[in-house]
């Protein structure tokens, strides 16, 4: 398994867990308030710090386990896989933002727009990692 594939597995897992934690907290807050909860910067900051810390620690571990592979530059296949995965994940992000905008147009709920945008960012990144793994395994 290449360094990029290992990285995609780790980041996909970390982001899925962090994203689930964040969105479940927002959901619980919204249910308690009886309306869409406003964005809580502290919650976002905590989730971001946890994600970055997890990413740094895990990447240090996989780099130490195989330094030669970690230092190698992306080759033509890596670039093709990452470009294709990034391209498709862009559609996921675009769809989410588009849905959020229409929601705002009809419901005028700015808080929900914010959460949909954050959710779309998370979903598009998770999709990018999942597709990276898929293309590495199945071919591009």
């Amino acid at each position: 398994m290449s360094f990029h594939e290992k990285s995609a597995w780790i980041m996909g897992l970390l982001l899925s867990l962090t994203g689930y934690w964040y969105l479940s907290r927002v959901w619980a807050m919204s249910e308690a308030m009886g309306e869409t909860a406003p964005p809580v910067i502290g919650l976002i900051a905590f989730a971001t710090v946890m994600l970055v810390a997890g990413a740094v620690i895990s990447h240090i571990i996989i780099a130490v386990s195989n330094p030669e592979e970690a230092e190698a530059e992306e080759d033509e296949r890596d670039k093709q896989v990452l470009r294709q995965a990034g391209n498709v994940s862009g559609y996921v992000l675009g769809f989410g933002i588009f849905a959020g905008l229409w929601q705002y147009y009809f419901l005028r709920d700015g808080n929900l727009l914010f959460h949909i945008c954050v959710g779309s960012l998370i979903a598009s990144q998770v999709a990018e990692y999942a597709l990276t793994i898929f293309y590495y395994r199945r071919g591009v």
Binding site: M1, S2, E5, E69, A72, D75, E76, R77, D78, Y136, G139
Partner: peptide, 10 residues
Amino acid sequence: IGVTRQTVIA
């Protein structure tokens, strides 16, 4: 050829 071993395998 300037690629990774994983690419040769693929």
